[in-house]
């Protein structure tokens, strides 16, 4: 395959950055998007240039590290697929492909296509946990969970925290991420003790980190590589209102 790539290059956080064009021939349609970038980087290194920095780790769609906005869509054109699991056969021969980093104030660019997503870690630290004694694994059947709740909690727990929801949102909001965490923990019996304080502190941290406000556009759920449904945001709002206006919050 012949391709023209327009890639965002930025030498560091302070650099202004710009799109740089690269031509590639002979890319296998069976290569993944990241393998295609590996080929380009080897070429750049051989030519004495600076390779393109991009995040990646497991390359099997479960770690949430890869984070590329491809032709304006986070994780590219294929639904419910991470960038690492996207293959070049999804593109046309001779296509011009734009590759950009996640764009959000809370996700500053470190270099090229790498952004700092520790804002998500701080949101999780503020409430995305349960208090349970560690070291002793209890018998799994000792705490019954209704099957529909378990299924919905599992669906929400599929969130890999990649940040595609923020990258896709016209408001730069992380409501889908918040909703996934709040739904995942809030549906399980183990998540009940912190349920009402969790939603408030996670949302407060979200706002402090500089993410935008949700207007229910639904772009997040379309971009989400795990297909987290939009109704988790409804649950987030429900729990938040109950915690604040409903007076359930303790701290």
């Amino acid at each position: 395959m012949k391709l023209t790539l327009r890639v965002w290059r930025q030498s560091g956080p302070q650099d202004k950055g710009a799109m740089v064009e690269y031509k590639l021939d002979d890319i296998s349609p069976d290569a993944s998007f990241l393998e295609m970038l590996d080929v380009l980087n080897e070429k750049l290194i051989a030519d004495g240039g600076e390779p393109i920095a991009f995040d990646h780790d497991c390359r099997e769609g479960i770690c949430g590290m890869c984070s590329l906005v491809i032709n304006g869509t986070p994780h590219g054109p294929e639904r419910a697929t991470t960038t690492c699991q996207l293959h070049m056969r999804k593109f046309k021969d001779g296509e011009v492909i734009d590759v950009e980093p996640w764009r959000a104030k809370a996700f500053p660019v470190v270099k090229d296509l790498v952004v700092d997503r520790s804002a998500f870690d701080r949101i999780v630290q503020s409430g995305g946990f349960i208090s349970a004694p560690t070291g002793t694994a209890p018998e799994a059947h000792s705490t019954p969970v209704p099957k529909p709740d378990a299924d919905r909690a599992f669906e929400a727990a599929e969130c890999i925290g990649c940040g595609a929801c923020v990258a896709a949102c016209p408001n730069g909001s992380a409501a889908l991420f918040l909703g996934a965490k709040v739904t995942h923990l809030g549906l399980m019996p183990q998540g009940q003790p912190e349920r009402w304080d969790r939603v408030v502190s996670m949302l407060d941290t979200h706002d402090e980190e500089g993410f935008g406000g949700c207007t229910n556009t639904g772009e997040c759920t379309v971009a989400c590589p795990k297909g987290i449904p939009l109704d988790v945001i409804g649950r987030l709002n429900h729990d938040y209102l109950k915690a604040t206006a409903g007076g359930k919050k303790r701290a």
């Binding site: 869509t73 764009r103 104030k105 406000g213 639904g218």
Partner: peptide, 19 residues
């Protein structure tokens, strides 16, 4: 809040009409 949350815009023009 939206414009503060994304100070640098995307170069690629896309039109998604998710909903």
């Amino acid at each position: 809040r939206a414009s503060h949350a994304r100070p640098v815009k995307y170069q690629s023009k896309k039109k998604s009409h998710a909903q």
